[in-house]
Design a protein around this nucleic acid. Structure first.
Lengths: 338, 338
DNA sequence: AAGCGATGTGTGACCGGTCACAACGTATGG
DNA sequence: CCATACGTTGTGACCGGTCACACATCGCTT
């Protein structure tokens, strides 16, 4: 590749240098018993002297495993960075995987082309398992894992057609609870900024809102946007005010969306919570940085990541995973915005 | 590993099924010429029928390359997620690498243990090259790359002792310019919230501040913190106000730090920019979301990522990289905070 | 003294691809 | 009609490890 990259030392070079066989070197490398003290020191010295570094590709090929786990996010790259929720899940997963000395590799799928490249990447025993975040309902990635029979756990509820272990929250119930809180503060005209309806979280939050509103549900007061983004919240709130200037309550599908809504309300001269009550979802860093701070649903994002990673580890140990899914608790956090 | 994971189809299975040899299958897989039309269709049919997926580990071993490039961040995981600057660099790098159909894998180094694991990971031909972000001045990672002779480009200025291609900005000059702006608005008692002095960016920004202040530089008005974080800005600003309640100007080493400072000032009853002028650095998303919006230094973070990735690509093509470093332009953006 | 288990070491096959080379038509040109 | 070139295919070696097995040595028991 490069002009004259020097050939790297192999296990044979080490064996030659130390005056032993490949097998013995391999044993030392893997910390196996049944190696004499002399052989061990000779080999360690030889490793240092020839500058040996094991070749992971060769090891992976021979052992048929990689000691790496993928963290797959099917979102635009920008959102991956902006959404503190995904970040917290990543943190949790990384904590658990690091603890087992597995390398976590993050892969973001942004385009159709990315999707194919990632599939190719995964197909080579590059990862032993994967944590998958924000898969679409019809995600081709999910079937790819089925084909490759790589252990995977999904964060969020997978479509019924796919049999994969998962961890998630009761988005519908939580959305219902936070909406009921909003209703309980005396609001009459309540709208929703609904987002990501192509995913279980988005669809379920809308369903929960509908549950809570009952007869008072008004389709006209639901503004939709594709992604959980600040800017989406801003523009959706503007649209909602246009549709009905008398709204006095808003359920935003995420804290980032709520933050955007807050700014749109401020720009329109509305006071929060005096004129309009606003609630969010996630209890992410957005919630505490907004002014006023957001009343929202706390979801244990970090714990979701940890549980998902643990589930992958369990599968790697050969345990049969439950396909029922694990549902973690959420609760309403009341702050200043409603 | 798992109970009875079925053996995956190999190139030999495909060859058998199609009635040709391994070599011919390999040719089809790699899109080489000199394959008859009949052989090609027979092989394609066989691939589909046996469900063949190429094994990347084997291919990597044979070809001695991986078609993947690492994106290495040596920061706490939480910061990796919170810092929009790193995010923008990542976006830029990903855009370029995707364009060349290389898989980008993100690796975050958080602890000493991570560091060793990542080195092990890299050592196996797992990546053909790497973009390295926010390396410390004495980073062991850098020497590891030297040992492995894997092409890498650093974002930021590397220590003089390490000969590696890099792209960066003139932190010192830019810090000087923004400080001069602050001075130009008539501020008399100007402090700095200095961060990450163990990295070139942090140290250079402090140096630039010093340059601009000249005789009026007062060490007492410089508050130090380890990381570019919102919370660091908040606490550092509190400390600065304690040290000298008469400060009327603040240069925060990054926008996130400035945002924290803004909140601390608000909590202390100071108005910005009336009582205190505040300037940041980066022109990241924080700058436009603060109230008031931040006067700051625009740095082309995304472009930095793109250039770094392009440099890695060039090295992969066998071009001899320049070790002089590429410096991209910055400029002061004046908004409401000073 | 023979038998046995534990410890230590070497060897060859194998993981699943790639690649250089040899070999085999078949068409073309002298 | 033979030499040559070109297109197409198969074969064996190789990439750098791991692993099961064979074998040697040694101390201890019976």
């Amino acid at each position: 590749m490069a002009t004259t990259r020097p050939r790297r030392a192999t296990i044979r070079d080490v064996a030659l240098e130390a005056g032993v066989s490949r097998g013995t070197v391999s044993r030392v490398l893997n910390g196996e018993p049944y190696v004499s003290a002399e052989a061990r020191v000779a080999i360690e010295r030889a490793i240092a002297s020839v500058g040996y570094v094991p070749n992971t590709a060769a090891r992976n090929l021979a052992t048929q495993r990689s000691r790496a786990v993928g963290f797959l996010v099917h979102e635009p790259h920008a959102l991956f960075l902006e959404d503190p929720n995904i970040g917290a899940i990543l943190l949790g997963a990384n904590r658990v995987l690091s603890g087992s000395d597995l390398q976590m590799v993050s892969l973001v799928i942004d385009s159709e082309r990315d999707s194919r490249r990632v599939e190719r990447y995964l197909s080579g025993g590059f990862v032993d398992g994967a944590v998958i975040v924000s898969a679409r309902q019809e995600d081709s990635l999910l079937s790819a894992f089925g084909r490759l029979s790589i252990p995977a756990t999904i964060v969020g509820r997978p479509p019924a057609s796919v049999r994969v272990p998962w961890v998630g929250i009761d988005n519908r119930g939580a959305a219902r609870a936070i909406t009921e809180h909003l209703v309980g503060t005396g609001r009459r005209r309540i709208g929703m900024l609904a987002v990501a309806l192509d995913r279980d979280s988005g669809a379920d939050r809308l369903a929960g809102f509908r549950d809570a509103m009952g007869d008072r549900f008004d389709r006209h007061l639901v503004v939709e946007r594709p992604l959980y983004e600040y800017t989406a919240g801003r523009s959706a709130m503007e649209e909602l005010l246009e549709r009905d200037p008398t709204v006095d309550g808003v359920f935003a599908a995420s804290d980032a969306v709520a933050a955007g809504a807050l700014d749109a309300l401020r720009a329109a001269g509305r006071r929060v919570p005096d004129d309009v009550g606003v609630v969010g979802f996630d209890d992410s860093s957005w919630a505490q940085r907004s002014q006023p701070q957001l009343t929202t649903v706390h979801q244990p994002a970090r714990l979701l990541g940890e549980r998902a990673a643990e589930s992958v580890l369990a599968q790697l140990r050969g345990e049969e995973p439950s396909l029922d899914g694990t549902i973690l608790e959420t609760h309403v956090v009341v702050r200043g915005s409603a």
